[in-house]
Nucleic acid binder design. Sequence first.
DNA 1: CCTACCGATCGGTAGG
DNA 2: CCTACCGATCGGTAGG
Lengths: 198, 198
Amino acid sequence: MAASRKPTAKDEPNRRAEIVRAASRLFAEKGYAATPIRDIARAVDMQSGSPFYHFKTKHDMLKAVALEGIASISRAVSKAAERGDTPRATFEAMLLAHLEQLLGDDGRHFAATLLHESHHLDPAALAELIEQKDAYEALWQKALRELKRSGEIADDSRVTRLLLMGALNWTVQWYRPNGGRTVKQIARQISGMLLKSR
Amino acid sequence: MAASRKPTAKDEPNRRAEIVRAASRLFAEKGYAATPIRDIARAVDMQSGSPFYHFKTKHDMLKAVALEGIASISRAVSKAAERGDTPRATFEAMLLAHLEQLLGDDGRHFAATLLHESHHLDPAALAELIEQKDAYEALWQKALRELKRSGEIADDSRVTRLLLMGALNWTVQWYRPNGGRTVKQIARQISGMLLKSR
DNA sequence: CCTACCGATCGGTAGG
DNA sequence: CCTACCGATCGGTAGG
């Protein structure tokens, strides 16, 4: 898995992205504070000081991971939200997109870092992240509003949204691929729990 | 808040419990790996090496916090489960008890540590914790089973339980006391979302 | 991006 | 429980 040749500065076009990817995996698995930069460097075949050529501080790495995490979830769910023709179909497409980002191979470590390690960010970076997160959650608030208008949900308050986010985001803690249930089945079960008609 | 007298070995009857309490708060706020034992010692007016008189390792402190966390949640919810006369009343009492433990002043830091920092435990301690957690969640599975029998819920599968746990446990991320909603209101909203009749 | 390195911090311990 | 301390690790940097 690790390339044994010695990379040089001109070698890869985007070493920075590789670092972010490796960092996301290690932050997700061992936590930000418990991950030495040396481990991230080794994961991308660098020497221990070299990541600092791409990032000024370790915090900047975390910031990059967290922002990329919320950005790709946001992108995927926005796109899904455009496709539904009914409030219910829209909602179900959004559920599926959100879960695919959280549980899929590509975004899983970004999402886990975003959800569990963001509190290590400095206040400025945290504020930036919260701004993105608020914009993202507004998509859900809108979807809930339309479900209420069409009579498929009784309450579209902020608390409802937060409880829904909890049910979704908590899947990161227990979902295992090859664990019997597909992501699509879980999405369907959530909509079955929340929506009235069938 | 911090006593300025110098405590001696015979001084307090239960310094160990104070350490666990302080550790729960710091682990919850800054994370296990980012909390130096020196900070815990200072929080209980000890010198930096003294916590090791009570705990062999830092991991043992985390283990104590996590096990006390699951134990008190388990105790509170068990007690609540005994009091309801209908499946619905039982369920609502359990919801309230669980949330009070997670969000109340006493258990809040224990719960946050339990939920967010347990992965730092060594495999043996983690296995012990999971055993307790499984026993706890069986209480919920039973409650869901009875709600299904009485026709107030459509699905009492394991996934339903996990989604419910997610909605509940995620409150730790967003609930703020004096934030408008009481714990009781949140509990009621969850039962309103999940249960069919009114 | 590598080499070589520094200062600070940290978990843990010996001895009392 | 305190004093005094050690060895290891870690984020970060200078210079090339």
